[in-house]
Simulated assay, not measured.
Amino acid sequence: MNPDVIALVRKINASAEFNRWCGFEVVSAVPGAVELAMQWRKEAGQYSGFLHAGVVGALIDTACGFAAATVAGPRLLAAHFSVNCLRPALGERFVARARVVKPGKQQVFTACELSAVENGAEKLVATGETLLTVLAGEAPPER
């Protein structure tokens, strides 16, 4: 693991209130790939007791954005993302593994698989793809 890459991704993650609220944890980061995890939280569940699809999408979008940031820098904006929910997201922990499919100067294409971990066993619960736009200029103002 490259310490500079994981430090960058962890810094980005720590700067997002939503990520902190969800408990997103950067497990690993190398150029072009990131692993993000989240412990089950009742507050992130939906009415049937599964991880809410909005949080499933957020995990995939965030992991893809972080993977893109490892090759394009932190100034990115999702232009499009899609999620395929394959089964109910039920587990003690959720792990999103994202990778860069095609980097570019203006756009970065990424893909992600999200697994639920229950009793040590992983099951694929969702997949997704994201197209990110690389933003130029200075960082946005603090809010």
Rank of each mutant, 00 (worst) to 15 (best):
N2R: 04
N2G: 09
N2L: 03
P3M: 00
D4H: 10
D4T: 11
I6P: 06
L8A: 05
K11Q: 15
K11W: 04
K11Y: 05
I12E: 07
I12H: 10
N13P: 00
A14R: 11
S15E: 07
S15R: 08
E17C: 06
F18T: 15
R20G: 14
C22T: 03
C22Q: 08
G23K: 06
F24G: 02
F24M: 03
V26N: 10
E35L: 07
A37T: 10
A37D: 08
M38L: 14
W40A: 10
R41I: 00
K42C: 01
K42E: 15
E43F: 01
E43A: 15
A44C: 15
A44L: 15
Q46F: 06
Q46M: 02
Y47K: 06
S48Y: 15
G49I: 02
F50T: 13
H52D: 08
H52A: 07
H52S: 02
A53R: 02
A53T: 05
A53L: 01
V55Q: 03
V56T: 12
G57Q: 01
A58I: 05
L59Y: 06
I60S: 00
D61L: 00
T62Y: 01
A63H: 04
A63P: 10
C64G: 10
A67I: 07
A68K: 06
A69H: 15
T70Q: 07
V71R: 03
A72N: 12
R75I: 09
A78G: 15
F81D: 09
F81I: 00
F81H: 03
S82V: 10
C85D: 04
L86D: 03
L86Y: 03
R87V: 09
P88S: 02
L90Y: 12
G91K: 07
G91L: 05
R93E: 14
F94E: 01
V95M: 04
R97A: 10
A98L: 00
R99Q: 12
V101E: 03
P103L: 02
P103S: 13
G104D: 13
G104F: 13
Q106E: 10
Q107D: 04
Q107N: 13
T110E: 06
A111P: 04
A111T: 13
C112I: 06
C112E: 04
E113G: 10
L114T: 14
E118S: 11
N119H: 12
G120S: 08
K123T: 13
L124V: 01
L124R: 11
A126I: 00
A126F: 11
G128E: 02
T130V: 07
T130F: 06
L131T: 13
L131G: 08
L131D: 05
L132P: 10
L132W: 14
T133D: 00
G137A: 11
G137S: 09
G137V: 05
E142W: 01
R143G: 15
